[in-house]
């Protein structure tokens, strides 16, 4: 029996670990911690395999463990995750503007509280509905809505602090990020000043 379980488990890992690893990376912001998180999740999944009963129940369980473990406040070594100045290179059809936009957003996402970050990942990366997200996180739909709203408001505010109007994608956002990056340690201020001069009207944020 254990051999049979091992076999099924290995099949499951082979087919789903790549997707789970990507989610883990978005939750932790770091590949090393993502691997650790995924292994922890898979270990618990293996231990629970018999209890789960059907193979259909395995992935939701693994995903739930992944998310709840990532959002556990006591996992202290994950509290400080953030993007570094040396962002990984990856190719895509888009240009520098959009990469800068993504990098800026990613930096702000990583500074969100773990629960808010998890809600965003589930809603906007996993494309889960509010009720699916609520079920997975074992919280109410209302909490999902409020956490999402708070996270989005925070992102919008931080973008505004960078002198960027979130509703307008592209050049100004990219410019803000690039100007900030070029200025060295004080990244935000030059971008803010420049953008404010250009737009004359910067959103004040949610608060």
């Amino acid at each position: 029996m254990p051999d049979r379980i091992d076999e099924l488990f290995r099949d499951f890992v082979a087919s789903r670990s790549a997707a789970l690893l990507r989610t883990a990376y978005l939750l932790t912001g770091d590949w090393a911690n993502a691997e650790d998180l995924l292994q922890t999740s898979l270990t618990k999944t293996y231990l629970a395999w018999r209890r789960l009963g059907t193979i259909e129940a395995v992935e939701p369980y693994a995903r739930r463990v992944l998310v709840t473990t990532a959002t556990s406040w006591w996992r202290r070594r994950w509290h400080g995750e953030r993007p570094t100045g040396n962002l990984p290179e990856f190719s895509g059809p888009d240009g520098a503007d959009e990469r800068a936009e993504r990098d800026l957003l990613w930096r702000f996402v990583l500074n969100l509280p773990p629960r808010q970050r998890a809600v965003l990942v589930l809603r906007f990366y996993e494309d889960l509905t509010e009720s699916e997200t609520a079920r997975l996180l074992e919280i109410s739909v209302g909490t999902v809505k409020s956490q999402t709203a708070r996270a989005i408001a925070t992102l919008r505010r931080r973008l505004a602090e960078e002198g960027v109007e979130p509703a307008i994608r592209g050049s100004r956002l990219a410019e803000a990020a690039l100007v900030g990056a070029a200025s060295g340690c004080s990244e935000a201020e030059p971008a803010v000043k420049r953008s404010r001069l250009e737009t004359g009207n910067v959103e004040g944020g949610a608060r």
Binding site: V13, Y25, Y125, R169
Partner: peptide, 25 residues
């Protein structure tokens, strides 16, 4: 637009090359 940008940012980040996991199972 912000949610759309966020969705694309997360997808792009997740699609970055992942490390080799070895015998994870």
């Amino acid at each position: 637009a912000l949610e759309d940008a966020l969705s694309r940012a997360l997808a792009a980040r997740a699609n970055a090359p992942a490390p080799e996991m070895g015998d994870l199972a």
